[in-house]
Design a protein around this nucleic acid. Structure first.
Ligand code: SF4
Ligand code: SF4
Lengths: 134, 134
DNA sequence: GGTAATTAGAGTAAAATTGTCTTAAATTAT
DNA sequence: ATAATTTAAGACAATTTTACTCTAATTACC
């Protein structure tokens, strides 16, 4: 799975938020979209930290978009929510059990790097508008 | 992670096998490539079942390629080894907790389907030769 | 001040991946 | 034939990742 449940929830929430005219709260989103509240709250926090959402605290608070949907890329969203870009295969997590210990002369590593670049480019080229329509 | 450790091991093994002139055994591959033996054996079995490798039992047995490397696609390999194609995001695994219960009117589902098609096409277009060279 | 909301972080639970073991079956060499 | 080698199969265990929860603190509005 290239993307996780958290990213799915983020996309569904972003769609809801951009359709809402007042700030949408975590609780509201959770109920409307049937997403576990505490989990969703974390996701929204991450989107706020990465300047995709603006969070308003206090009564009548909630989240609103910080940018136009055509200026938010899928790459940003995934990275914000998952804590790192969507990975094809992350060698760096297996340094201790890398069969070629260090990737110096790994036969498939160049391919993986190339593949990753393609995915990154694709994710960067896709805006939220492309995903959820205008 | 779009692809798993099992696929990495498969690719490394396939590279080794195609360079070897006699059948390569699970034990040999395991030692040469520093891959856990029993885990690798499973992977090789799967590749054999899906007609990528031919397995020869008994003394001097092992695995050899069943096709030319340009006729083996990455799609085949991943599907054989992982039991299913590489998924961008698999809604079908979340039927019981799908916020739009059933995907009928899910705003992001069309995008996901489209994305998946792109990945499938890419994986089908890549041969083992493309990955590990001639 | 009181209430409604986000923030932060630790902690838990479930699921998927990764890896092991044991036994059986097949093939080859002697 | 028999022994040695090697794959086949499946149950099981360990590890890692994902998914989710809880509690307490903080901020802002009215
Ligand atoms: S072997 Fe090649 S692919 Fe596997 S981890 Fe080391 S570098 Fe990455
Ligand atoms: S909500 Fe849309 S994306 Fe999430 S699971 Fe249901 S269908 Fe798939």
């Amino acid at each position: 799975m290239l993307i996780t449940r958290a990213t799915e929830y983020a996309l569904l929430s972003l769609d809801y938020i951009r359709k809402s005219d007042s700030p949408a709260g975590a609780e509201q989103l959770s109920e409307e979209l049937n997403i576990p509240k505490s989990f969703l709250a974390k996701i929204l926090q991450n989107l706020a930290k990465k300047e995709i959402l603006v969070s308003k605290k206090g009564a009548k608070g909630g989240f609103i978009l910080q940018k136009k949907i055509k200026d938010i890329t899928l790459f940003e969203i995934v990275t914000a929510v998952e804590g790192r870009p969507a990975m094809v295969f992350d060698c760096t997590q297996y340094i201790d059990t890398c069969p070629n210990n260090g990737a110096k002369n790994c036969t498939i590593s160049p391919f993986l790097t190339n593949f990753q670049k393609k995915i990154d480019a694709l994710l960067r080229s896709l805006s939220l508008e492309d995903i959820i329509g205008e």
